[in-house]
Amino acid sequence: MAVTETPTRERAPEPQAPPAGRPARARHRAGTGLGLGTAMVYLSLVVLIPLALVVWRSMERGPAAFWQAVRTPDAWAALQLTVLASLAVAVINLVMGTVIAWVLVRDRFPGKRLVDALIDLPFALPTIVAGLVLLALYGPSSPLGVDLAYSRAGVVVALLFVTLPFVVRTVQPVLLELDRDMEQAAWSLGAGPWYTFRRIILPNLLPAMVSGTALAFTRSIAEFGSTVLISGNLPFKTQVAAVHIFGQIESDHQLGAAAVSTVLLVVALLVLVTLDLVQRWGARRG
C-alpha cells in the first residue's frame, strides 16, 4: 500500500464506517454515557433517592413497627376509605368515560367541540381550585341545595372531577380509529346495534378502557388538593390517605407518614405493573 494512499494509516478501514470513521461512533457512545449519567444524577437527586428514603424510613424500625403504623385506627380508616372510594370512582369512570368518549366521537350536536375541549380542564386546573369549585357548588352555600360537605359522597365527587379525562382520552382515539367496516360486516350478518356493540366494538375498546381506568385509579388514591376542602378531613369518616399523611408530617410523625406513603406507592406500582403485563399479553394476541 503506497504511503500516499491512506493519510491516516493507523485507522483500519471498516466496511460500513460513516465518513468520519471510528471516532464518530466512539463519540456517540461517550455521548450516550454522559447523557445517561447526567439524566440519572438528575433523576436520583430529585426523584429516586427521596422516594427510596421514604420506603427506607418506613422500614427503619423493622416490619413490626411498619405494620403498627399502617394499622393505627385513623391510618387504616384513611387507607380503606381511599381504596374503596378510588375503586368506586374507577368503576364510574369506566362507564361514564366510555359513554362520553362515544358521544364525542359518534354523535353530532352544536357545541360538541367546546365540550370536547373542556374535558381536559381537570388536567389543567390546580387541585385546590377544583376543591374550592366543588365546595362552592356542592357545599353549605350550594345554589342547588345539595350539601355534600363533610361526607364521603363529597370525596367521591372530588375524585370524579380530577379523574374525568383519563378514560375519555384513552378511549377516544381507539374509537376514532375503529374500522367501521367491521360494524357493517356484523350488521350484514344479522347483528343488531347492541349485539354489535357487545361482541365487536366493546372487545376492541376494552384495552383502552382498562388502561384509562387503571390510570384513574392510581390518580385517585394519590389525590390530595381537591379533597381537602369538601371533605372537611374528618378522621375515620372523610379523611383520605394523602390528607392523613399530611397530618402526620405536620405533627412530625415521620414513620407514620412514611409507612402510609409506602403503602400508597406499592399499590400504585402494583396497578401499573399489572396494567403493563396485561397490555403486553393483549398485544401478543392482536
Binding site: A222, A242, F246, I249, L265
Partner: peptide, 9 residues
C-alpha cells in the same frame, strides 16, 4: 404515580 404529599415527605 406519586401522591403530592408523598413528594413533599
Amino acid at each position: 404515580a406519586v401522591s403530592p404529599v408523598v413528594v413533599g415527605l
